[in-house]
Write a protein that binds this DNA or RNA. Structure first.
Lengths: 209, 209
DNA sequence: GCGCCAACCGACTCTAGTGTCGGTTCTATG
DNA sequence: CATAGAACCGACACTAGAGTCGGTTGGCGC
């Protein structure tokens, strides 16, 4: 039970990877302020000062992780969305992709969406940029549908719609994390039901052209 | 410019009220961990140790504020929702009530919905309770509409729908705080458009029976 | 007017946590 | 084999902040 890991010395890049991995977990679990570098270090199998050999500060470490995980999210979604297909199919595929992401990388989802407790201006800028591009992507995806509803995709109303859609979807993912027994497909159906079909419809009238 | 406030001594209850008011602002702005009691004290026009004459700890202070503001939210919404009216009208009224709340008490909205960085078990329980009752209320309100969609209001799918609706709405309120120039009515329309009408509809087919 | 209660304060302790520094050991390379 | 550079560590300085305590003073009841 003793030395299951002989505590070998690692190459810099490998250690860095381990550290960001550990940092992701701890930041996601505790939030920025409540996270102690000590805890990250322990989770990475290393002493606290080693963190400072690889990252200049806690702030920069968080920013690094943030960008890493956002890249992962973008890639994950992008990999399973084809630009083609009917609007309904595209939305469904995107929802499914997002839920699949939050299933595979729950900590990443938490880190990217849940916490807002950092008060650092530099971190704020990074978060702002991430959100901005995310919103834009979704707006582009929905462009045709919004126009179909008589909305200029650049209008405030359209932005509001996009925002509602994104945060609603993530809220659902959050709920899923607390109720993991529900299968993913059912989540997608629920989301489609309200976002696509609308609550006003009666069962027979769902349209998906 | 000197003594605009003669620094009078206040009655206990009045001071308590000032403190929770100040605490609301600071907690909402900075989050739990980043908030220093010093800052709350300053905002309340008093020294830090006075806070401890009125509240045993930072944790209890937050919990107090949380419950106070949740009561305010419930009251605010309840006051402008009549149980009657068509389903669409009820949903619209609720959305309007919530946006009006987040317009009047932006700090309360932030405190109740935005932050999750507290890691304290006691606080978690309080937050959990608040969310639970909130979800239940909305589920009750939507009961008829959910059934109309062929959903058992106690099913997972129904819960998911409610969750999506709540967090989507709050996400919209959050967006509104960053884009305050948009009039409230437009927000309501946007929310109704996606939640009630559904994105699949073409302009002519919006139903509101 | 007088005394008592409670509002208020300043100064203190103690802890947790960030960032620094100098030294040590592993390992890749010539 | 030698050496340089990099990974790693322990110990330190320093700060911020929570909670405590004893004392002081304003104001309300008698």
């Amino acid at each position: 039970m003793a030395s299951q890991e002989p505590r070998k010395r690692m190459r810099g890049s490998a250690r860095r990877a381990r550290i960001t991995e550990a940092a992701l977990d701890v930041f996601a679990a505790r939030g920025y302020h409540a996270t102690a570098m000590e805890e990250i270090a322990a989770a990475a199998g290393v002493t606290r000062s080693v963190l400072y050999d690889h990252f200049p500060s806690k702030r920069v470490l968080l920013i690094t992780v943030l960008q890493e995980q956002n890249a992962r999210l973008v890639e994950h979604i992008g990999a399973r969305i084809t630009g083609t297909g009917s609007p309904g199919r595209r939305l469904r595929a995107t929802l499914d992709a997002y839920f699949s992401f939050s299933e595979d990388w729950p900590a990443a989802r938490r880190l990217l969406f849940d916490h807002t407790d950092e008060n650092d201006p530099e971190i704020k800028i990074v978060r702002w940029g991430i959100r901005e591009t995310r919103t834009r992507s979704v707006a582009v995806m929905l462009g045709r549908d919004l126009r179909n509803l008589g909305l200029d995709p650049d209008s405030d109303t359209a932005h509001a719609v996009v925002e509602l859609l994104i945060s609603g979807t993530d809220g659902l993912a959050q709920w899923w994390a607390r109720n993991p027994s529900v299968p993913r497909g059912q989540l997608v159906e629920a989301a489609m039901l309200v976002l696509w079909t609308g609550l006003s419809q009666t069962p027979g009238r769902t349209s998906m052209s």
